[in-house]
Amino acid sequence: MSDWQPSALQLERTAYRRSRARRSTAIAGISSVVLVVLVAVAVGSTPGWPRVRETFFNVHRGWEALPVVAQGLWLNVRVMLICAVLIVILGMTLAIMRTLRGPIFFPLRVFAAAYTDVFRGLPLLLVIFLLGFGVPALQLRGLPNQAVIWGGAALVLTYSSYVAEVFRAGIESVHPSQRAAARSLGLSYRQTLRFVVLPQAVRRVLPPLLNDFVSLQKDSGLIAVLGVIDAIRAAQLETAVDFNFTPYVVAGLLFVALTIPLTRLTDWVARRQGWYGGGGGVV
């Protein structure tokens, strides 16, 4: 055990593997630098570049616009977080409804299928208009009339239809033998779903699910059409001052900056939990 010393052969192998790893890193680094330089030179040498730089990449204008755009982004973030929670709940409910077996659940299955068909097909913008302008126009008592709430509701309705399909694919990808094993232990249908099928299903669909949430984060900007001031709308108001488009670029960078940590975090959690096929050896 502790008296083990790697043999000369093993040391040589380890050194070889390390040198291969170093070589791969070096190749990746060099090829990246070369690509970036090539692109920079190609873009920088175009005749219109000085104007484009002034209009889109004006550091001073960008810095000026940053607080306003960031404030708008804070609205996007809140809308996205609240909607994400509701979407997961609604999407999961729809997915489970669609996978229920037995004739008694027929209406639920049909409802869930129809719901997904309709809201996956309707353009999001249309749903936002319908809810944001249509419902308040009904002048029903007791219903809220802030644009942001109806905009959020439209996001939830549309996105839960996507997410429901992602969950359903995950549920159906769990091998039937898993259900059989769980039922054989005396677990009920519900318990089987809750403790055996869903945990496996959710792990599998985590990456596509994350896709939908990144997309949601960007589409949360669409509620600006209802007059809400989010990051994009704030940038638009800024550009209206002097027709310099840098605020848009600032908004874009902020959106990207939000997305990247989210992706890395999910990957990290998933890998740490061994969700991506645990204990698989070297192949």
Partner: peptide
């Protein structure tokens, strides 16, 4: 058996 089939990498030996 998995080592012989190179499904695992050995830590030493041939």
């Amino acid at each position: 058996l998995r080592c012989v089939n190179l499904l695992e990498t050995v830590d030493d030996g041939v």
